[in-house]
């Protein structure tokens, strides 16, 4: 009885919210050209950043500050998960080993998935993808190992410093920009040194985009596998 009342109350609230939102959305019709700043990006992206993929150029270069914040958010999540699930002694508690197919397959696939992830983030300025999907793909490789083997753990001594170093690298690239071009996160490789201007559309172009995407890819990969590790290891009680 109460349950029905509750549900209907919730549904009425939702209908009001939905109507309100639909009113607003009707003022922004679907599929029309309303670009203002977007047009500027599309027209100038090749000359100003050396990237072919406009989304990548925006993410890393024009709105690089957002991306720095985004990397920070992921760092916070991995730190926070680590802090909350911190125990003095932690160990994997999985009991069932993966099947033979899974174990062999994961060992075989592991290097290839890593390579694929690296490919995605290195080619971020040319093809769809970039640091975030690339890093997530790398984390998936470790996820598969976690599922296949009961006692697998990531090399913590390597991963935690790597996570910090990649983040510091990102900020340092920005600070070098501040020193060389007098703006934080300035693309000094492209705008001051003009590296890669000759081979636009190939791998060695795009200014600092590949550098930053490599750092982001490493960072995202280590962070996401760190989160997976924190969730899968439990306290050991003696």
């Amino acid at each position: 009885m109460v349950s029905v009342l509750k549900r209907s109350l919730a549904i009425i609230t939702l209908l009001i919210i939905g109507y309100w939102l639909a009113q607003g959305l009707a003022g922004v019709p679907f599929g029309q050209d309303r670009m203002l700043v977007g047009k500027y990006y599309l027209e100038n992206v090749k000359a100003q950043t050396g990237a072919v993929n406009a989304v990548t150029a925006i993410v890393v270069n024009y709105r690089g500050f957002d991306t720095l914040g985004e990397v920070t958010v992921l760092f916070i999540a991995s730190t926070g998960v680590g802090a909350l699930l911190w125990r003095r002694k932690k160990k994997r508690t999985a009991k069932t080993e993966g099947s033979v197919v899974l174990r062999t397959g994961s060992e075989l696939l592991f290097p290839f998935i890593l390579m694929f992830g690296t490919y995605i983030f290195i080619h971020g300025h040319l093809t769809p993808g970039g640091g975030f999907p690339g890093g997530a793909t790398i984390a998936t490789a470790f996820l598969i190992l976690y599922m296949a083997f009961v006692d697998y753990e990531i090399p913590h001594r390597l991963f935690e410093p790597l996570e910090g170093l990649a983040g510091m690298g990102y900020v340092l690239v920005g600070l070098i920009g501040l020193a060389i071009g007098s703006y934080f996160l300035f693309d000094w490789i492209w705008q001051t040194w003009h590296w890669g201007a000759a081979n636009l559309g190939r791998l060695f172009s795009g200014g600092f985009i590949p550098v930053i995407y490599t750092l982001i890819g490493l960072k995202v990969g280590t962070e996401l596998s760190g989160i997976v590790d924190s969730m899968l290891t439990e306290e050991v009680r003696e």
Binding site: L68, T72, F75, E160, P161, E163, G164, L165, G167, M168, V171, L172, G174, L175, L178, S182, Y183, F184
Partner: peptide, 25 residues
């Protein structure tokens, strides 16, 4: 000093937070 150095307000806490995993020992 150039006014752009005010970006240190954001850069400094970030880089120092990323540095902590290296000195946690």
């Amino acid at each position: 000093m150039n006014g752009q150095y005010a970006s240190l307000l954001v850069a400094l806490p970030l880089i120092s937070a990323f540095f902590v995993p290296l000195i946690k020992g």
